[in-house]
Design a protein around this nucleic acid. Structure first.
Lengths: 195, 195
DNA sequence: ACTATTTCTTAAAGTACTTTAATTATTTGT
DNA sequence: ACAAATAATTAAAGTACTTTAAGAAATAGT
């Protein structure tokens, strides 16, 4: 049941058979239905979530009451409000399933123990956090340097399958514009392709 | 000379006296004058840079030839192109001193050894990368949810000393608008404060 | 002290997006 | 299979910014 996670780990570190058992016995498994929540605003984030299957999104509610998606998680990604998780403070974010999903959880209660018992996990999560940091810096660059239209085209060519999977209003939110503007772009594109 | 780094380390992990010596003997120290470079576009980023004193900026050149700052580093921050550093690929970024600065460097050539000899460093950098990731996610949220004007006000109230330290055109770039627009905001603000 | 360079300002014209509001299409639950 | 809810489209009017261009102010180099 934890296969996707164990495979993922093996790509970055080696751990012994006994360490592997320690890890597995400390993980929690959770199925979450579409629209179910792993975290809600105001709660202290109690887990680090690994997406075994499905898709989740992390979003906040802006000053004018609309949802703003800041991150998606698909198979092979860790997702959490690490600020809330580490500092025991209420989260500003929601983490919600976009599709029926399976999640492996490292809860705060076992987290410190796990890092002590399996030192290589520090190495693994160092790499994961670095990867996430690199990706988010790249996104900042994208937001600062390119127009909404370019962002849309780049994203749809880079991740065509993913674009099919999620509602368009979520894509619009993630890329930083309105659903109406996205509709306009699609209409424009369609007429270009047909001509 | 490495005091700011050793103090910073001590805030997150404990290491033995001998580990401390190993670390110090593997660090490189570099003074870099204002406008000097730690990294240029096209180079493979060969170091992880810790700002002991001064201030550096990381930027890229956009499609239309202007500079886009994606990150500042001041005393107590690690800065690097971790993508280039880890994967041995040419960087898209420049890292340049904004003021005369002192830098401690972990070079790629000693990096793996250091992590092996001082396992706690994995823990330390896991936390650093997590911190950087949290900060950049927060910035993404800021870029997506707030107007340029609000971003400017928020940043100047949150970091008034830092705003004094750097040229305004760099602040404008970092916050995602033009220097001309920033000038306009300042003029507007001045007249409000004087009335 | 003087010149060259860099940084900041002002203002007018242009544009990439948002907002609003109404309609249509698609998906979901029973 | 149908009703209810959710998601996508269209179009017009509005606005937060950018672009351009020129000049003033501040900083740095000799």
């Amino acid at each position: 049941m934890y296969e996707p996670l164990l495979k993922h780990l093996a790509r970055f570190i080696r751990i012994t058979e006994s360490e592997r058992e320690i890890l597995i016995s400390n993980l929690r498994y959770k199925k979450v239905d579409k629209k179910g929540y792993l975290l809600k605003q105001g709660q202290i984030c109690s887990g680090n979530f690994f997406v075994l299957s499905g898709c989740v999104r992390m979003f906040t509610i802006t000053a004018n009451g609309t949802e703003q998606i800041v991150q998606f998680g698909i198979t092979g990604w860790w997702i959490s409000d690490y600020h809330s998780f580490e500092n025991n403070v209420p989260s500003d974010y929601y983490i919600q399933a976009v599709e029926d999903s399976e999640i492996a959880i490292i809860t705060r209660s076992v987290c410190d123990d796990l890092f002590q018992q399996i030192p290589q996990l520090n190495n693994y999560f160092r790499k994961m956090m670095q990867r996430a940091y690199v990706a988010s810096l790249k996104k900042i660059e994208l937001l600062l340097c390119t127009s909404a239209e370019d962002r849309f085209h780049q994203f749809t060519t880079d991740f065509p399958e993913f674009v099919q999977r999620i509602p368009q209003y979520m894509l619009a939110s993630f890329l930083g514009f309105t659903p109406e503007f996205l509709s306009m772009l699609r209409a424009k594109n369609k007429s270009v392709n047909n001509s």
